[in-house]
């Protein structure tokens, strides 16, 4: 997906920047693509075409779309295993992502990584990591590399409300603040770490304050509102680019589906989920705004629905038609051959 054409100007959250019409429309389309992709992934999982763990991003789309809206070409992204939305938002091809989910040769990792472990060096997406919290030091290392290379880029490091209780997160916060690394930590607070609510796992539930001891400023953001996310992202990315170091953005969001596909979701009520969907859905909210402010009409939205649906159909077909990896692939990519590197 395209990134913001110009460097966004930092604005306070209270007074959101005026977002151009074409940007709003693009954000809607990007969120819709993620939603439809994830619904299809859920369906393919139900059909047995996707195996193992599969963590869907439905409900949280505004977070990654809003962050990418404020990012520049060359900024890097890393996240945990709920990663399909991040990959699509980084511009990775839905075909390659879906084919990785089905474990096929056409997948981004040739079928060897699966849902939780996908990467694109070209699109600056550094995974897709399966160990809760491990991506935080890794992403801080991406920020370290930006500073070392003096390339003016920023690392966006996503973590969940569960990961904030991992010790290595604070080791990373300390170094990022100490060395003023260009990093934005994006806590996607969807209220539940698997089945344990933030209230039951965190002493001190305002997660954006977790960096205060290191002097890292934090902000709570309405993660169900793409415009609010974009405004907060622009400010935090600007700080990092100006050499002022890391920021923590706590995105207040919600996942409609279970933690993974096999989650019966007994830890929350159906009414709670339904209320979030009805009153806070990021896609419905933006749709209403687009129509109310006449950025687009119903017909335009319908065409966009069709375009997205076609993309998902193509991805689904590709993901089923692509062959399983050649058995010889079992042994490749364990080590990089020194001779290959020299050549």
């Amino acid at each position: 997906m395209a990134k913001a054409a110009t460097k966004p100007v930092a604005k306070s959250a209270a007074q959101p920047a005026k977002i151009p019409s074409e940007d709003l429309i693009r954000h809607y389309r990007d969120m819709l693509l993620i939603r439809r992709f994830e619904e299809k992934a859920g369906q393919l999982y139900g059909m047995g075409l996707i195996g193992g763990f599969c963590h869907l991003y439905i409900g949280q789309e505004a977070v990654v779309v809003g962050m990418q809206a404020a990012a520049e070409e060359g900024d890097t992204v890393i996240t945990s295993y709920r990663d399909h939305g991040h990959m699509l938002a980084c511009g990775m091809d839905p075909k390659g992502v879906m084919a990785e989910l089905t474990g096929r040769a056409g997948g981004y990792s040739k079928g060897k990584g699966g849902s939780m472990h996908m990467f694109s060096a070209e699109k600056k997406f550094y995974g897709g990591h399966g160990i809760v919290g491990a991506q935080v030091p890794l992403g801080t290392g991406l920020g370290f590399a930006h500073k070392y290379k003096k390339d003016g880029k920023v690392a966006m490091v996503y973590l969940g409300d569960g990961a904030v209780n991992q010790g290595q997160v604070y080791e990373a916060f300390n170094m990022a603040a100490l060395w003023k690394l260009p990093v934005v930590y994006v806590i996607e607070n969807n209220k539940y770490a698997m089945g344990t609510s933030v209230q039951r796992s965190a002493a001190g539930t305002k997660l954006c304050d977790r960096g205060l001891a290191y002097g890292i400023p934090g902000e709570q953001v309405d993660g169900m509102d793409v415009a609010a996310v974009r405004a907060a992202a622009a400010k935090a990315l600007g700080r990092a680019r100006d050499g002022e170091g890391p920021t923590i953005l706590e995105m207040m969001t919600y996942r409609y589906r279970g933690h993974s596909m096999s989650d019966p979701a007994k830890y929350r009520t159906k009414e709670e989920v339904a209320k979030m969907r009805q009153e806070h859905d990021p896609i419905d909210r933006l749709r209403e705004r687009l129509l109310a402010e006449k950025h687009i009409d119903e017909n335009g939205l319908k065409n966009m629905d069709r375009e997205v649906k076609d993309l998902i159909s193509q991805a689904t077909e590709f993901a089923q038609a692509s062959p399983e990896p050649d058995p010889a692939e079992l042994y490749t990519d364990v080590l990089i051959d020194l001779e290959t590197v020299r050549a």
Binding site: T76, I78, Y126, A134, V136, P137, L138, G139, T140, G141, L142, F144, A145, H146, Y148, K149, G167, Q168, E171, A172, N174, M175, L178
Partner: peptide, 20 residues
């Protein structure tokens, strides 16, 4: 570095991913 093996090992690996 600070005394923070888990953190700086991870930071090093992340830096290596991006070519250092």
């Amino acid at each position: 570095t600070p005394i923070t093996e888990h953190g700086f090992a991870g930071l090093g690996v992340g830096a290596a991913f991006s070519g250092l």
